[in-house]
Amino acid sequence: MMDFLGLVSFGPDGWGLSLLFASLVTIAVAACGFLLGVVLGGFAAWANLAGGTALRVSADTYTTIFRGIPDLLVIYLFYFGGSLLVTSAFNALGHAGFVGLHPFVAGAGAIGVVSGAYQAEVFRGAFRALSKGEIEAGKSVGMGRFLLFRRIIAPQVLQYALPGVGNVWQMTLKESVLISVTGLVELLRQSQIAAGSTRKPFEFYLIAGAIFLLITWLSQHIFERLEKYTSRGVAQEAS
């Protein structure tokens, strides 16, 4: 037991500080990907609902492709493809040699694009749940498109979408470990390094799992609080 505590201590021989820092990297990369996903998903949902045929087809293609292909492949595409793109851009500017895309940027981009495809479906479903009467009522009192969106559509869509958005966040968080294959020192990669140097893989992967469990559990609580907050204006079922 003391051995185990020594492994995760914050002293010079312990891995505590590195693991803590790596956990922050995991949260940061997942949060960046998630926010990118909110933007992409919102845009794709809008294109699907309000756009013409061309926009709708491209939004459908986007959500179908990135929900049907393994995230790992998307991460490979962004990491290697992104580096290729950056290198050729630099070469065109007269900079010779290879320039790599930072794994954090490539990773956040990849999981962002994937989570956007899922969020698009969540937003689309939430918009469908909005009653038509409310929008008509808004129009009838003379609200313009932007005002209508800000006062009527956005608050309700966010409320309906919140449980789905929470699921996508949990998914994005867990998918972020795949970025470890590109060498980004996030929680899993750090555990691999620690496991390799101490020859105790079981302990370190168990610790990584426990930290993830803590993060997902906390996120679940935060989303439950948010759900309560956003639905405060709605009559609750007596419980």
Partner: peptide, 14 residues
């Protein structure tokens, strides 16, 4: 609550 890859590593390497 934990990522699948961590579970795979725990079983295969751990």
């Amino acid at each position: 609550g934990t990522p699948l890859l961590v579970q795979i590593f725990l079983i295969y390497y751990g």
